[in-house]
Design a protein around this nucleic acid. Structure first.
Length: 511
RNA sequence: GGCCCGUUCGUCUAGGGGUUAGGACGCAAGAUUUUCAUUCUUGUAACACGGGUUCGAUUCCCGUACGGGCUACCA
């Protein structure tokens, strides 16, 4: 069997939806597993919906999640150009060829005229029943058609759908699907502006680019019948690609497919990257800026509508490639489960190398004005990675590893502190300030000895020591923090704490 | 409305003519960690409904219901 060639063909009309990323992923996994090629084609045939920056966004997304195309816009390849607006003449040529072959025709009806017709007639469609009464090269004398064409009158080219035939599609996910041609409309192939519609461009390009498998969203299933007719019309049925229509991603709650609006509605990202639109309503946060690791997003998306069987949940990209199969893709829509996405991220952060985490944390730390070494960042990563869900948590939840304690947990302080502890903590501060060697293990032993020498229990002192260092009862092991903070800082925090607790204890007693 | 697709725990799913219907997330309880989190253990919870076919259907077939998609000179 020849190597498969698949394409991801998004339209640059705005930020790439997370469902689009999943489509790209499945295409990529299939291609890589079979040793084939993954191609990025930009489908910008609608000039009205073109959004500047969208193409760049798509490419940046693919790079971020690591789905690097073998060919495509920005990636070279021998079948280019890969941007449909750069292929305009090609489509015109093929559209005319179809007319010549008697499989398509010119239609001069204006959009406005058709609009009027639709308003007057319920369920009006341009098809074998109505085309005889409309203005096209099927109804007009040949001479007039030529005259109109020569005069440059605006017109479109429509697919001539012959009624009475059953069109069978063998979908790799759904099995055989049958459509009756009598129910199909004469789709526009070439628009009046000279640009092709999706239907024409997609068939011509898939053929010219030697695409073997079309893996796309379920919303394309109904028009696949037209696509088959197009392959036949061109005489390309022998090399027609195989189809696989993916189930949709549904809203977290309620009915319908996941939409960009759901991001704001549920406070969750539905886009891979941040998107800055013209207005706040058209701007969205993404998985990346929320603090997801790309590997976690891939793992989450892969399992949203597909599972190889077995009980494994965590898959690296290479494992996904090895395990992937189109047959195991679910048929039903998959609800977007953000809790699961969070869980994946947490797992990936936990499993990540401290040094790698440090590189992710650095920009976040710098944004807050923290100036620290890579080694320290790696240390923080090690201390916090089992306590965070998102990357920013390192500098937000664990802020006290970068700057002084902002606030002491009042409840814990009142519960544990008493004025009799003041001299104890002053002595403890001295111990910490002078103890050698200053490392977590040795310090822990020394402090525990100190506690018992004072006739106290660990529970009398340790929680307060934690408060002194972090201000909160949550967090990494006390002596690990002390070691990370260093001797001077640890002692300093103890001094500040003793001063604060002293005042606080008085007010607590009085009030 | 018409055409097409779908339906296993709350969610993502495995499975497949006879199973204690498995796993994961979530939730709950317990253990460990003198914090929190992690980790571990246990628990919770599902075959949409009605007819067939069959010795036997969650699994196969047909309906119904519900959900979804498409029905543009958008993709």
């Amino acid at each position: 069997m020849t190597k498969p060639r698949v394409r991801f063909a998004p339209s640059p009309t705005g930020a790439l939806h997370i469902g689009g990323v999943r489509t790209a992923l499945y295409n990529y996994l299939f291609a890589k597993q079979q040793g084939g090629a993954f191609i990025l084609r930009i489908e910008d045939t609608d000039q009205n919906r073109y959004v500047p920056g969208a193409e760049k966004y798509i490419i940046e997304t693919l790079r971020w999640v690591g789905l690097i195309p073998d060919e495509g816009v920005d990636f070279d390849g021998a079948y280019g150009p890969y941007r449909q607006s750069d292929r305009k003449e090609i489509y015109q040529k093929y559209a005319r060829e179809l007319v010549t072959r008697g499989r398509a025709y010119y239609a001069f009806d204006t959009p406005e005229a058709l609009e009027v017709r639709r308003a007057a007639e319920e369920n009006f469609t341009y098809n074998h029943l109505t085309r005889g009464g409309l203005t096209n090269s099927l109804t007009l004398p040949a001479a007039e058609v030529q005259h109109r064409l020569d005069a440059g009158e605006p017109c479109v080219i429509r697919l001539l759908v012959e009624p009475g035939q059953a069109i069978r599609i063998n979908d790799l996910i759904r099995g055989e699907v049958v459509f009756q041609s009598s129910e199909l409309d004469d789709k526009v192939l070439l628009k009046a502006d000279g640009m092709p519609t999706y239907h024409l461009a997609n068939i011509v390009d898939d053929h010219l680019m030697a695409i073997t498998h079309v893996i796309r969203g379920e919303e394309w299933l109904p028009s696949t019948a037209h696509h088959v007719l197009l392959y036949e019309g061109f005489g390309w049925q022998d090399t027609m690609p195989q189809f696989a229509h993916l189930p949709l991603i549904l809203k977290p709650v309620g009915n319908g497919k996941l939409s960009k609006r759901d991001g704001a509605k549920f406070g969750i990202p539905v886009f891979p990257l941040e998107w800055k639109g013209a207005t706040p309503e058209d701007s969205f946060s993404g998985f990346r800026d929320t603090g997801f690791l790309p590997e976690a997003v891939i793992n989450f998306l892969a399992l949203l509508g597909w599972h190889p069987g077995g009980e494994q949940e965590i898959f690296s990209l290479n494992e996904l490639i090895a395990a992937f199969s189109i047959e195991h893709i679910s048929k039903g829509g998959a609800r977007f489960d953000y809790e699961k996405a969070r869980w994946f991220n947490q797992k990936y952060i936990q499993a990540a190398d401290n040094g790698v985490l440090a590189t992710h944390i650095r920009p976040l730390a710098e944004a807050k004005g923290y100036r620290v070494s890579d080694a320290y960042l790696a240390q923080v990563a090690g201390l916090m990675k089992e306590r965070v869900t998102f990357l920013p948590d390192f500098v937000e939840v664990g802020y006290y590893l970068f700057e002084s304690v902002r606030v002491y947990d009042a409840e814990a302080l009142h519960k544990k502190w008493n004025t009799g502890l003041s001299p104890v903590f002053e002595d403890l501060t001295d111990l910490v300030a002078t103890f050698e060697p200053f490392n977590g293990v040795a310090l822990e032993e020394a402090v525990k000895n100190f506690i018992s020498a004072k006739g106290l229990k660990p529970g009398d002192v340790l929680p307060l020591l934690r408060l002194a260092l972090a201000g909160t009862m949550k967090g990494p092991a006390i002596f690990d923090m002390a070691e990370a903070l260093g001797q001077d800082e640890t002692a300093e925090r103890l001094r500040r704490f003793v001063a604060y607790a002293g005042k606080n204890a008085e007010s607590a007693v009085n009030g």
